[in-house]
């Protein structure tokens, strides 16, 4: 079955560190194949080419933090047949969503000499809060093998194999000994979405939850286990308040451990 026309791929950036986009450029082995299979229509990190839409596949990195972004994402949605968000910023608001827990004006006045030049939204929010998203790829940063899988799945018309279960399953398949049970190291793996391959525990560290909440996270029980291993209320609050702080389950759990001020 020969493809008639190469699908147009666009990569868009919103508030983010560019790390997830770079994962695509980092796909050395597959990059040529990708460039051969799709027409890269818009990808400022990689090429000056700017082709008009509509785009068959848009990869969106970053969160919505300004009024311009909030408008731009609607244009992108309209110009995209399939819209995939990549990375924690785009799927949960990212590390910059930490400001959502405070008044953004306070931050602005501390950080900037001329706060009046800053035009920002109160909150950093995921793309899916603004437009319909066809698929969300998790991670901070995303796993490049998963990104290739998503693109390959899109081209083949199949569902990507990016399971939503816990990271524990990846650790066990890999043969990693559980750091929580065997070393008493607090780990977020049991409530964290798979995708990294169980990276940190393989190096003897607890999971930081870079891939955000798994499909059915029991964050309350997780917090209990952390505290049993000696974590303080504050530590529990902080561990849920990182790259995916604004995702509903992690947000609720961190708020449950927030001390009254």
């Amino acid at each position: 079955m020969a493809r008639k026309r190469k699908p147009k791929l666009a990569v868009w950036k919103f508030a983010s560190c560019d790390g997830c986009q770079l994962s695509l450029l980092d796909c050395e082995d597959e990059l040529l194949a990708i460039a051969g299979a799709v027409e890269i229509a818009y990808f400022p990190e990689a090429t000056r080419t700017r082709l008009k839409g509509p785009y068959d596949l848009s990869l969106v990195e970053g969160s919505i933090t300004t009024p311009e972004d909030a408008a731009r994402i609607h244009h992108i949605r309209r110009a995209s047949k399939t819209l995939v968000t990549i990375g924690a910023c785009a799927t949960s608001g990212g590390i910059q969503a930490l400001r959502n827990f405070r008044d953004v004006k306070d931050f602005v006045s501390i950080v900037y000499a001329e706060p009046s030049y800053i035009d920002t939204l109160e909150q950093s929010t995921p793309i899916a809060e603004h437009v319909a998203v066809d698929f969300e790829l998790r991670g901070c940063p995303i796993n490049k093998a998963q990104l290739v899988e998503v693109i390959a799945a899109f081209l083949a018309g199949r569902r990507p194999n990016t399971p939503e279960h816990s990271t524990c399953i990846e650790c066990k398949r890999r043969g990693t000994v559980c750091v929580m049970v065997a070393a008493g190291t607090p780990c977020l793996g049991p409530v964290t979405h798979a995708g990294c391959g169980g990276l940190c525990p393989a190096y003897g560290r607890g999971c930081y939850g870079c891939f955000g909440p798994m499909e059915a996270p029991n964050t309350q029980a997780m917090s209990g286990a952390w505290k049993a291993l000696g974590a303080s209320e504050d530590e529990v609050m902080r561990v849920f308040r990182s790259y995916n702080a604004w995702s509903a389950p992690f947000r609720a759990e961190s708020e449950a451990h927030e001390k009254e001020e």
């Binding site: 816990s166 524990c168 029991n218």
Partner: peptide, 11 residues
């Protein structure tokens, strides 16, 4: 209420 549904037991 206690189960993390993390699947460790089955693995």
């Amino acid at each position: 209420g206690r189960c993390l549904s993390c699947a460790n037991c089955t693995m």
